Computed example of a mutant assay.
Amino acid sequence: MACAYCYVPRRKGYANPITVFTNIDAIQRAIARHLGRQGPKPEPNQCDPADWVYDLGENSDCSVDARVSDNVADLVAQFARLDGAKASFATKHVNRDLLALDPRGGTRVRFSLMPRRDAKLLDIRTSTIDERIEAIDDFVAAGYEVHLNFSPVVLRERWQSEWALLLDELGERLSERAKAQARCEVILLTHHEGLHEVNLGWHPRAEDVLWRPEAQETKRTEHGGAVVRYRVDVKRRAVARFRELVARHAPWLTIRYAF
């Protein structure tokens, strides 16, 4: 997998390796201890109304990791047993071996989706958008909570009409059961000058839409690094417009957060 915009390669030396942990037992014990210290969740928030949510795959795609390691299966089994906690990971890879696990609602899979034109250009060596949409109902039936990760939203010609078509398609293809439990997150593109330079060497066509200095500005992240994001005024209008698109074309879908 080599998505042209992904922040994981920026953190891993412009590579996107599979992540395997040799200390999985220690990790599981640390999760259990942390949950014990947290106690019951006092009030709902944008992550979840009742459970503390632990992101398993911030720096990797767990569906891919599960191809070569039992780490993900071990964690799915752990969160199936834990009260008050839920695992979560976003994915662009459909690994149907995960359907054989028994998550019992304790793991949230967030399938990343975007218009097909964007995916063809930017989502390199990932499962197709069709494969991801087809998998949603199967994962719900297997006991996963399934959310939608609309990320990244790339502001380019016809972006609004293409997202509207995708939202319409989801309404037509997903079962009522899947739609009833679905939530989504909306994340506009964040880019990086270093990744921009790397892309110019191997995939310059992607930079035609990712690198737009006239609409972007440099920001410091909470970790102190410099990234490139849409200007505040551009982003504010785009987020508002995306919320309108969801309200009109997918009124069944609640937005957990959009930024």
Rank of each mutant, 00 (worst) to 15 (best):
M114I: 10
R231I: 14
F139R: 03
P17W: 00
L210P: 02
E134M: 06
K179W: 02
L170E: 02
R67F: 06
V209D: 00
D118C: 07
R237Q: 15
H93M: 07
E172I: 11
L121P: 00
R104T: 01
R117T: 12
V186Q: 01
D65H: 08
S161L: 10
E176R: 11
V186G: 02
H249R: 11
A15Q: 15
G105S: 03
P103T: 03
Y257D: 11
E197P: 09
L200Q: 00
I18L: 12
Y144E: 01
D74Y: 07
A87D: 07
T254A: 09
V64L: 10
K179P: 01
S69M: 05
A73R: 07
G224F: 03
P204Y: 00
A30P: 10
N95P: 05
G106V: 02
D51S: 15
I27E: 10
N199F: 01
H191W: 05
T22P: 12
V94E: 01
R81V: 06
L170V: 08
F21S: 11
L56W: 14
F111I: 14
E131H: 06
F139L: 03
G36A: 11
D61H: 03
V94N: 01
Y5D: 03
A258D: 14
A250K: 02
Q46Y: 12
A30C: 12
R205V: 01
H34F: 12
T128M: 07
D123E: 13
V94R: 00
W52P: 09
L56G: 13
H191V: 10
L121C: 00
F150Y: 13
L113W: 04
E197T: 08
A30T: 14
E222C: 15
R243L: 11
D48A: 08
C47K: 15
E197H: 04
G225Y: 14
W252H: 08
A250S: 06
A258M: 11
Q28M: 08
V154H: 06
K12C: 14
L188W: 04
H34L: 10
K86R: 12
Y14A: 13
R116A: 11
P9D: 00
A180V: 06
L99M: 05
R33A: 13
T221W: 14
A4F: 07
I129E: 05
R33I: 13
I124W: 08
M114F: 07
